[in-house]
């Protein structure tokens, strides 16, 4: 259980995190969403006691990170940038962390096995690929078999198999009753992995709700629609209060209407419907919510 209350971090003039309050409950995966520069990494760093809040506080089971008795056995964190000396082997790196918390040497081999790095455990970390480095970071997070797992952009650099593995891992960790908090840019991935969302923009809380509600809340739920003859359809959609974009291949992207209304409209026009697909709309919901608070967005 993580509790942030009025968490604020200023770097000079930049307010990276602004009066942020949220809860991360055990037993489910909580996704942490926000555009680039919105303060996700800074928030994670404050949870782990690496950055000091300018004001406010964040606790883990009511304790500050610096007061944890066996930090790695209580919280496992994957930080965004690689936090590993490149000259050491993966095994030495994990072993030194294990020693810091009286964790058995056998656990080092276990986590290397879990993340699939056993074969390269004696190689210098500097020679690792992006994905291997990420896996080593995940191994470090799992080392103490912690009740709280914090992962900043865990799928960064992972291949599709790795992404799926990560998803399964997060769900099973949460299924064991652990607190799992992961940040990501990949909305679609979040929809598959997370149960709950904390969404921030420019350091402020935008939404804190179940993933399902987040998607439903989006007014721009849209559908890909293909009908027998599409000439008059867009006008009819317009009249019915929706908007239709006709693509070059003749399919339409319709928003502002639900699936039933689109089906009824087609029936009333006597047009056969060949396809009616809801588009992944977490991205839309996300864009809509954070639209006003994108810091480094492309000019529009």
């Amino acid at each position: 259980m993580i509790k942030a209350r009025g968490l604020t971090k200023r770097f000079g003039d930049v307010v990276a995190v602004n009066d942020l309050s949220f809860d991360v409950e055990p037993g489910r995966v909580t996704g942490f969403l926000g555009p680039n520069g919105s303060g996700k990494t800074t928030t994670m760093s404050m949870i782990m006691g690496l950055d000091r809040p300018t004001s406010g506080s964040v606790t883990i089971f009511d304790q500050h990170y610096r007061d944890l008795r066996w930090p790695l056995r209580e919280v496992g964190g994957l930080l965004e940038a690689r936090a590993i000396h490149p000259g050491r082997s993966a095994r030495s790196h994990l072993w030194s962390l294990a020693q810091y918390n009286d964790i058995a040497k056998s656990r080092v081999d276990e986590v290397l096995e879990i993340v699939g790095l056993s074969a390269v455990s004696r190689k210098r970390v500097g020679k690792f690929s992006l994905g291997m480095g990420q896996r080593l970071g995940i191994a470090a997070a799992l080392l103490g078999d912690p009740a709280v797992v914090l992962l900043d952009e865990p799928v960064n650099g992972l291949d599709p198999e790795g992404i799926r593995w990560m998803r399964t891992l997060c769900k099973s960790l949460a299924g064991e009753g652990r607190t799992v908090f992961i940040s990501s840019h990949m909305m679609a991935e979040m929809a598959l992995t997370a149960d709950q969302l904390v969404v921030i923009g420019q350091g402020r809380l935008i939404a804190e709700m179940p993933v399902a509600d987040f998607v439903a809340r989006s007014s721009t739920q849209s559908f890909r629609v293909r009908v027998a003859s599409s000439e008059s359809f867009p006008d009819a959609v317009q009249k019915a209060g929706g908007t239709a974009l006709v693509e070059v291949d003749g399919t339409m992207t319709i928003s502002g209407m639900d699936a039933q209304a689109i089906g009824d409209l087609a029936l009333s026009l006597g047009v056969a419907v060949y396809e009616l697909t809801a588009l992944a709309s977490l991205e839309d919901a996300f864009m809509e919510l954070t639209g006003g608070s994108v810091e480094f967005g492309a000019a529009r």
């Binding site: 690496l50 690689r82 936090a83």
Partner: peptide
């Protein structure tokens, strides 16, 4: 220089 300090301080925050 390498960021290792962040791993170190997460294992021993004191």
């Amino acid at each position: 220089g390498t960021g290792q300090i962040r791993s170190t301080l997460s294992a021993m925050p004191r």
